[in-house]
Computed example of a mutant assay.
Amino acid sequence: MSFSIEGKVALVTGANRGIGKAIVESLIAHGAKKVYLAVRNPETTLELSQRYGDKVLALQFDASDEQSFTALAEQAQDVELVVNNAGVLEPAAPLSDNAVKALEYEMTVNVYGLIHIAQKFAPILQEKSEAAFVQLNSVASIKNFTPFTTYSASKAAAYSITQGLKDEFAEKGIQVLSVHPGPIKTDMAAQAGFDEADPASSVSEGIVKALASGDFHLFPDSMAKMFESEYQSYATNIITADLSGE
């Protein structure tokens, strides 16, 4: 399967800054007809709205509120591409006092949020002649980083769910892309203490190319490509291989 951005309607969660904002910019640059900006505070999308006019439409969305997913899907029935970019990071090592609370928060947004948005948009996407679903995971989904153990755990769970979605969505004609950035120059990276990082455009432009190529994995930036070189054999022979025996 492959998916072209040209002329398509897309929805991006967490679209007001960082990687999400860069994704919006790349989608429009590559010919997207309209992009829904799913954000907690629509006022934070003012810059994008002023720049792109009626090519973007901000929708209020809270990834920690289950009811918000239903409302979002009801307002975006024409969507052909969903990019689930919204995510949270709460630094916590395994023995940190806040480890359990951090994991609960990260699981709510990073994992349960993924399931909710996939379930709500599956019926919409499967009705389209071309459709795709993009999940922003992380290199932390395949390697635990101790100061961010709970985040790594939530992203590992999200990556596992994404693999399941790949199989189920394939039957519905929906392409799935799992994106695994390393540190990217965003507020989240700064919070995690990464001063040197690749630009968000490395992710957004990588998504466009990976969708066109029909890839399942995308390792877009410098650190991620180091992971890819070591992980590729396992991913090809285990993750994306047909092990059903049929």
Rank of each mutant, 00 (worst) to 15 (best):
M1D: 11
S4Q: 14
I5E: 07
G20T: 03
A22D: 00
A22R: 06
S26R: 12
H30V: 02
K33C: 01
V35G: 01
L37G: 07
R40G: 14
P42S: 07
P42W: 08
T45Q: 01
L48N: 02
Q50F: 02
R51C: 00
G53N: 02
K55V: 00
V56Y: 00
L57V: 05
F61T: 06
D62K: 05
D62N: 14
E66R: 14
A73H: 00
E74F: 05
E80T: 09
V82N: 04
V88R: 12
L95D: 07
L95Q: 10
D97Q: 15
N98C: 06
K101Q: 15
L103P: 02
E104C: 11
E104A: 15
M107T: 11
Y112P: 00
G113I: 12
I115P: 01
H116I: 00
Q119D: 10
K120L: 02
I124R: 00
S129N: 09
S129C: 00
A132T: 03
Q135A: 07
L136P: 04
S141Q: 05
I142D: 06
I142C: 04
T146R: 12
T150E: 08
S152Q: 07
A157D: 02
A158G: 11
I161H: 07
Q163V: 05
G164K: 06
F169N: 03
F169I: 04
E171L: 13
V176H: 04
V176F: 03
V176I: 07
P181Q: 08
P183Q: 01
D187F: 08
Q191I: 09
A192G: 11
A192K: 08
F194W: 10
D198E: 03
S204I: 12
E205Y: 08
G206M: 12
L211Q: 05
G214F: 08
G214Y: 03
F216L: 15
A224V: 13
F227T: 04
F227M: 02
Y231N: 03
N237L: 14
N237H: 14
I239V: 15
I239E: 09
I239P: 02
T240P: 02
L243C: 07
G245V: 08
G245Q: 06
G245R: 08
